[in-house]
Design a protein around this nucleic acid. Structure first.
Ligand SMILES: [Mn+2]
Ligand SMILES: [Mn+2]
Ligand SMILES: [Mn+2]
Ligand SMILES: [Mn+2]
Lengths: 219, 219
DNA sequence: TTATATTTTTAGATAAGTCTAAATTTGAAT
DNA sequence: ATTCAAATTTAGACTTATCTAAAAATATAA
């Protein structure tokens, strides 16, 4: 059984690898985990010895299949627990991440599978991120940032790129939630801000907000 | 924040102290935790230094108020999670203990309080053990082992003294559950076994079974 | 291409929790 | 009161995960 620490390393490497094609660098892992680079360097050797990652000195690391399986399972649990917290215990979507960081390490396939059924087999977590199935498959939605839409186009909110509490609370304040329809009324070249219509209201969204909001257009 | 390890020591000391008036001995803790006595001895010094227990060499230890608070909170969480697993996820009462041993360490008062509400503020766990309230008060039921009943008397099953999987499965097999009425028909002095009536059926229970079954008599 | 900056690794320490083996203390039994 | 067994503690060691400081490798930039 992987320790909490090892599980966190693997999950972090998995997530960093989605961004950087060549794998996860020591420094990136260090920053993501809040652990010093020297410590990470040490740990990478151990993970390599356990054949959970492939590691060559001074090079970015990649997960082996075994490592990926563990990482994806942790993510599966994280996201299912987030759904539980929001759907059943009425937490808000900006309150659940840290709790899920703890719950994701509870070690029981039976528990997570039953939880999944209890929640009616959700496909996405409260932030729109896909929930891996029990075989580790992840069905990613074909979504794009709001910045891809042209004036006059519209889409439905499917997720967030930035899931910081600040951004989530901002969206709540603007009454923007997953599933909402958003129509682009006008794009201002000056600061790339957009005037949009959503939930019957007209509002202005900064470029930064638009970059961090994912929508699905009817194709 | 107490580590998982410290939490487990405190919980164990609390539970052992319910049985032995003078406190918990090194050996008893060692056996309960599956940790060598030498290790326990070392740890007791540390817990004393943190003022979570009072410890004098070669003497049984007792919890301080701070130590008791932590222990009771862990027990509260353990029992609430057990209710969740049985009531919401349909686990059987003999399947939940090990999972609760993990879940009890999830650190969030908000989570446990919401969980409690979600479960409709249960007062007892699936084994009949009382769930401490958020102030650490434990309302113990005035129950007695089935061996206390005389021939002709009856009571309602309120709990088990032995909550091993084997015993719980035995009770399931006999269709004996919390809340069932049990009437003592006859007590055999030879082996102290009893003939009882419960759930419309007559059956024979060994003295050992009767000692481990708690009932409440209408008084 | 050489110098500089950044990244990564190594070396040496530390803390928590555990173990085995040996020493000590306690308590029970002659 | 002495002896012996059981319980407990001490000593020394190990593992995991972490740190700081220093060295080495790589990448960048003049
Ligand atoms: Mn999260
Ligand atoms: Mn999420
Ligand atoms: Mn239990
Ligand atoms: Mn229980």
């Amino acid at each position: 059984m992987a320790s909490f620490t090892v599980e966190n390393y693997l999950k972090t490497i998995f997530q960093l690898s989605l961004k950087a094609e060549n794998g996860a660098s020591t420094n990136a892992i260090s920053e993501a985990l809040g652990t010093k680079a020297a410590t990470v360097s040490d740990m990478l050797k151990k993970l390599d010895a356990q054949e959970l990652i492939t590691y060559k000195k001074y090079q970015a690391v990649k997960l082996t299949n075994a490592g990926r399986d563990i990482a994806v399972n942790i993510i599966r649990k994280h996201r299912l627990w987030e759904v539980f917290l929001v759907e059943k215990l009425d937490f808000k979507w900006d309150e659940v991440h840290d709790l899920a960081e703890e719950l994701e390490h509870i070690d029981s396939a039976e528990l997570v599978n039953r939880l999944e059924g209890f929640l009616n087999n959700p496909k996405f977590d409260p932030h729109g991120d896909p929930i891996p199935d029990r075989d580790g498959n992840i069905h990613r939605l074909n979504q794009s940032p709001l910045t891809e839409l042209k004036s006059g186009e519209s889409g439905y909110v499917t997720g967030v790129k930035d899931s910081s509490r600040e951004f989530l609370q901002f969206l709540d304040a603007q009454n923007i939630h997953l599933g909402n329809k958003i129509e682009i009324v006008e794009i201002f070249e000056y600061d790339k801000s957009r005037t949009v219509i959503t939930g019957g209201k007209t509002l202005s969204l900064s470029n930064q907000v638009c970059k961090n909001l994912y929508v699905k257009t009817e194709n």
